[in-house]
Design a protein around this nucleic acid. Sequence first.
DNA 1: ATGTTC
Length: 473
Amino acid sequence: MDALDIVEEGPYRYRIEPRGGMRVPGVVFASRELLQDAGKSLDQVANVATLPGIVGASYAMPDIHWGYGFPIGGVAATAVDHGGVVSPGGVGFDISCGVRLLAADQTQQELAPALDEVMDGLGQVIPRGAGPGAVWRLSGRGELERVLDGGSRYAVEQGHGEPGDLERCEDGGAVPDADVEQVSGRAMERGLGQVGSLGSGNHFLEVQRVAEVYDEAVAAAFGLSPGQVCVMIHCGSRGLGHQVCSDHVRVMNRVMAQYGIDVPDRQLACAPVESPEGRAYLGAMAAAANYGRANRQLLAEAARRIFRRSTGARLSLVYDVSHNLAKIETHQVDGEPQRLCVHRKGATLALPPGDPSLPGDLRDVGQPVLIPGTMGTESYVLTGVVGGGAFHSTCHGAGRVMSRHAAARTVGGRELRSRLEAEGVAVRSSSWRGLAEETPEAYKDVSSVVEVSEGAGLCRGVARLTPLGVVKG
DNA sequence: ATGTTC
């Protein structure tokens, strides 16, 4: 492919000029340095711009990196009523992967004497690593179906949570219109034994402290103050979500030609939103998303029990938000409201102050946007801004820059654990190899990703969190 | 990310 024609459009904003089959331009929010890191994934931004019905631009967040079909850090919206498509690759394999943050009624100093006990407790009760493992033993397929339909809402109804939790969950804890019939038997099998488990890779549960507050009023509305202890959970929909993606990519690849759709990469398999295959995927995706939300709800409950037992502290939910999802939303396009299918893959919803879908106590300040760092590095809490580009989306974290293999060559797991412990971060991992693959050097600097996201006008900083202890898959 | 290659 010839080199793309990239123009610097404004501060931290680059435009990829349309050419070939591109229906819209590409827009990449990045610094010069992060743009360099993007490399070949910019070709993926250009490929996404060819999708039928795409409106505005094919967007990329500052943490863009190579993904399946779509780049990770990609945002694309298609016009539902004008032949717009939905693409499983635009959501990713880990459907509804996201972040949940809880705030303790406790400071770091208060926790300090009990930190080891808390970490040991978390290390014992948090299932993690590849394969089965679950906090919640489901009674069978019937109950799994209720999880797929009701997400965190069903978990809370069953006693796994506090009533106030759902106010602080995106979509009130459950994506509507889940269609259990579109989730295959194999996906169900994989899902039965994994509700309430971290998984592996960059998924983690961290005990953190609020190291710095950038906006006191907004932080207070979120329930955050300096020195406070927090728990951050980063995980997704495990094998069930992965299987749903695989199943529906296969179907769409088979039928795409019947809809006259031609894409430059088979990994961009898609179908019109208003087609049997498009609706089937969205129904299955919603079910997998609800599984991911229930997963985080159950892990939060496990953490609450450990904190209550070891220190008496209570954990309140700050927010739970996905960074891998497609949603049907209404946005202004050329001055007219239009129904759009907004794909966010490695990009976080960032609703601005005033958005009607926010709960009352957050209406004036905007949605908490949760950005996980890499093991041993800081994480961020941001909020949405009025007029934010890219359909109210921002970054999702630090992108990987080193392969798992390369990362594991630079450091051993035991050595890395010693290093982190020396830096004051307690580590409870399940595999030395897995730990080494997640060494911080393998990732971009999350601080610069957040700085550029703010500079590009996508979000606003609220607080910085630093790790006290990490539980890793 | 993923019963880390149906």
